[in-house]
Amino acid sequence: MQMTQITNSKELLSTALQSRIIPNQEFLLQGSILDSAVDHLIHRLRGLCDTVDASPEQFHDLEVCLSLRQPTQTAPLMLRVRRALDRDSPFQLRYIGQPELDRSRPTLVRSSIDVGCTSTILDFLTELGCRLDFEYVSRGYIFRKGRMKITVSKIKAVPGKQQEIGSETVSQSYLVELSVLAPNGQDSIGDEMRIFAEQLKPLVQLEKIDYKRLGGLP
């Protein structure tokens, strides 16, 4: 009985994938804005986005990146766990695939799967053999426009014992990300994002950036 159920759920998943209702692709553009100009950007985003009348929504998240080294593969499997620090909401487990930097596409595209979890997810992943890779705190504002999500956030290192004083912030800028999660084969959204990114120029230059090409690890 249980076996049939499992096969059923597997079938359900595959049919869901085939009928393209699972948002498993992330379209992404990234940029940054200096601390001094962030108010200006927030102002503009408030005008451009759907939440015109309300004050911008804030968030404060801790993101932990874990890696699982598999003997068969050279590249470790990376998983991210995200937790809101300013409210009581479920943890979020996130898998992000390799970015595809197709020249013909206006945005970076990568596979991405988000799952809501309970707080025991970290213990569970640890039991699986995942190791902490790095972690950071992101705090900032989130905007929506249609399916597009725009985040403006400050990235800070988690203050640990060995952390040097005053070095928590990664840079003097806010990270700006424009992203959409969509099912397979909805490439038209990329153009929509490109148009929106144009509207934020010259305040922010949103581009597709492959972090793997930005030089190796320190």
Binding site: Q30, G31, S32, L34, E63, C65, D133, F134, E135, Y136, S138, I155, A157, V158, V170, S171, Q172, S173, L175, Q205, E207, I209, Y211, K212, L214, G215, L217, P218
Partner: peptide, 15 residues
């Protein structure tokens, strides 16, 4: 700054 932030979030550079 963009590159620093993106590589920090993506690979943990500096973190």
């Amino acid at each position: 700054d963009t590159h620093a932030l993106v590589s920090a979030v993506g690979m943990g550079k500096g973190l």
